[in-house]
Design a protein around this nucleic acid. Structure first.
Lengths: 193, 193
DNA sequence: TGCTACCTACCTTCTAGTAGGAAGCCCGTC
DNA sequence: GACGGGCTTCCTACTAGAAGGTAGGTAGCA
């Protein structure tokens, strides 16, 4: 409980990397076992089943995201949007976490355990709500220029960012992500330099 | 050769549905065997390995896409873009093919056989080249209004469409797709009614 | 004593893939 | 036109290994 990195934390972190690489069906308990240096049965002690493990993982991921977004609260709307895309640009660039766990899991929803689906959906709602409020604030300030509603702009923003991750993977070129997301923010900027 | 639907066609069609549902690792030869009404070993006769099967499937998918896009050649650029998004809106709406095979496979690229990756990449290149030429033509005509280069607009278009598929899945709501892609086209339209 | 964390050893089911054979069909040739 | 290859397509039967998961035990700690 007080450890710097507990075993269950290690399991979750490892599972996250594996999911980012290949999705829910792209990893096994044996893979985690090897990476963490623990026996398969010990993983079952921490997480009875694979669905429990991934559900916990996604819930934790969402909480972390929530905290990180709250941390940006004092910044200007435009800077918040930039911080969000630049975070992912950095992750994709250095290969550390080159995909959003929930974006990846969303693509597999028809074969995912229902409890995982609920968590993924919640992540999208969180992201949508945050972006909507940021964009709304920017519009009220006059620093952002909307084409439609704030909600509609937020959904477009989410889709474009996730699609840019997909394209970066497809082309095998991290630069594609920034090439797509930079104009995305510029378009929302009221005054272009 | 002259049959209406050969066994290998059935296998490919069935595998496509299964990939759309759960990706490369989300289906097995046993699943296909059951759906097609053939024994597992017979699938191996047509496609020695899973990688062969999926490579063929993606190559065929790309050829079909190429043919379908060529079929739109006589239409106006704006109508071509609309035809593309409306095709997917219909697929997602009726649940028939609610995801692009290559968009789904792109997310799993790190764990995909290399020959499949090449085919997926080729699909993205095809789509990008087609969209770039369509958008370029629209810009020259003055019927489309670009923010950046035609290529850049094309990449944004692809990313947003694929991301919208992801969001539709995440929310469990087909309407999200149209809600994102409709403004996408409107923004490219020079004169707004 | 009881709990946590981990272990060995095992289970069942599923995985892709193989070996080898049977049925049908085309095609040449005697 | 009957015979016999050879080819295609599909089959039964099988394999080795990986999958998720369980049973039951041990070591340390409070």
């Amino acid at each position: 409980m007080s450890n710097l990195a507990t075993t269950s934390d290690n399991i979750l972190r490892c599972a996250r990397s594996l999911i980012i690489a290949g999705g829910y069906n792209g990893f096994s308990y044996a893979d985690i076992s090897e990476a963490v240096g623990i026996r398969k049965a010990s993983i079952h002690h921490h997480f009875p089943g694979k669905a429990d493990l991934v559900r916990t993982l996604v819930a934790r991921y969402r909480e972390d995201t929530e905290a990180a977004l709250a941390h940006l609260a004092l910044q200007e709307p435009i800077d918040q949007l930039r911080a969000y895309t630049e975070y992912w640009a950095a992750c994709i660039g250095d290969g550390s976490r080159p995909f959003c766990v929930c974006a990846l899991l969303a693509s597999e929803i028809p074969v995912l355990p229902p409890e995982v689906v609920l968590e993924v959906r919640e992540y999208f709602r969180l992201l949508s709500a945050w972006l909507t409020s940021v964009i709304e604030r920017g519009a009220k300030q006059g620093t952002l220029k909307l084409s439609g509603t704030a909600r509609s702009e937020a959904e477009t923003f989410i889709a474009t960012v996730h699609g840019a991750m997909l394209s970066a993977r497809a082309y095998g070129d991290p630069a594609v992500f920034a090439a797509v997301t930079q104009p995305l923010i510029e378009r929302l900027t009221a005054a272009r330099q």
